[in-house]
């Protein structure tokens, strides 16, 4: 479930795992998890091997187990499902502690728990060793469409700002004596979500206007990558050239285009470029 996390899980460190390029870590996680998912449930020793491999990475990355263990709770809803499995599944029954349970259901429950837990530990290790901007760069190196990378970059950049907006609204409600106890209080919470949407949307418009004011242009399908700065901000000389040159109008497609075309240099995700 998505509840309860306000900020990214990055744990600062200098281990080889922290230094590894993010796109290799994402590919590594994906490959490892595909192997784990494809492992048949009755290959118990294989799961031992996967766990040993994973724990080696965790130790090398110096991610504290005290940090890791409480965060396994994201699994809980599916643990409940897994625990029910032996009782509802078909097939021959076996006795466990005097209770007849389905043999195939028992195997399925074990498989779900083993694979799910390996997945959460591996995912947490990636999150702990990779900072959000590195992750965005990694996605870009993996050739994720640039529009998606940009949306993810903006989301990550403004996540804390929007979460802070929400926190301030909650403080304002609490200071007026509001405590959400039962569904009768939903209208108040929903109004605060509505206000949060308007604030977020208007912030998005302001961010876009401020970007335009700093020379951002929706770069066309035929951009001049050598002159435009990496993230679509166009330099003064280039703006002058475009304003005067004939190339401006033959390039003006009716269809709006993304702020950056494929094949250019990666976006600079360093903070401080964007207004808030």
């Amino acid at each position: 479930m998505g509840a309860g996390h306000g900020h990214a899980l990055h744990v600062h460190g200098h281990s080889p795992v922290h230094r590894a390029p993010a796109h290799l870590k994402i590919l590594g996680l994906l490959g490892f998890m595909l192997l784990v998912v494809a492992t048949p449930g009755h290959w118990h020793s294989a799961f031992g091997l996967w766990l040993a491999l994973l724990l080696t990475v965790v130790v090398v990355a110096r991610v504290p187990f005290r940090w890791l263990l409480p965060r396994l709770v994201v699994e809980v809803p599916f643990v409940v499902f897994a625990v029910l499995m032996p009782f509802i599944a078909h097939g021959p029954r076996v006795d466990v502690l005097g209770v007849a349970v389905s043999e195939s259901g028992l195997l399925a429950a074990w498989t779900l728990l083993a694979k799910g837990t390996l997945g959460v530990i591996a995912g947490l290790t990636l999150a702990a060793t990779t900072s959000p901007p590195e992750l965005v760069r990694g996605l870009e190196r993996l050739r994720l469409p640039s529009a998606l990378v940009q949306i993810a970059a903006f989301m990550i950049r403004y996540l804390e700002v929007v979460a802070d907006d929400l926190r301030r609204q909650n403080i304002a409600l609490a200071s007026r004596g509001f405590v959400a106890r039962d569904p009768r209080h939903w209208p108040v919470l929903a109004k605060s979500i509505g206000a949060l949407f308007i604030r977020s949307y208007e912030r998005g418009e302001r961010v876009h206007l401020a970007m335009l004011a700093r020379g951002y242009e929706a770069v066309g399908e035929r951009p001049t990558p050598s002159r435009a700065t990496p993230d679509g901000f166009v330099g003064k000389a280039e703006r002058r050239r475009r304003a005067g040159g004939p190339s401006r109008h033959d390039n003006a497609a009716d269809e709006p285009v993304w702020g950056r075309a494929a094949g250019e240099r990666p976006v600079d995700h360093s903070p401080g470029r964007m207004p808030s």
């Binding site: 993810a152 996540l159 929007v162 979460a163 605060s192 949307y201 912030r203 998005g204 876009h208």
Partner: peptide, 22 residues
């Protein structure tokens, strides 16, 4: 062309909304 900043902010909004407990 406003898609990137606006969709990014709306994504942050959806994420924050999922943190509100009813």
């Amino acid at each position: 062309e406003r898609t990137a900043p606006l969709a990014g902010l709306v994504a942050a909004f959806v994420f924050a909304t999922q943190m509100v407990n009813f």
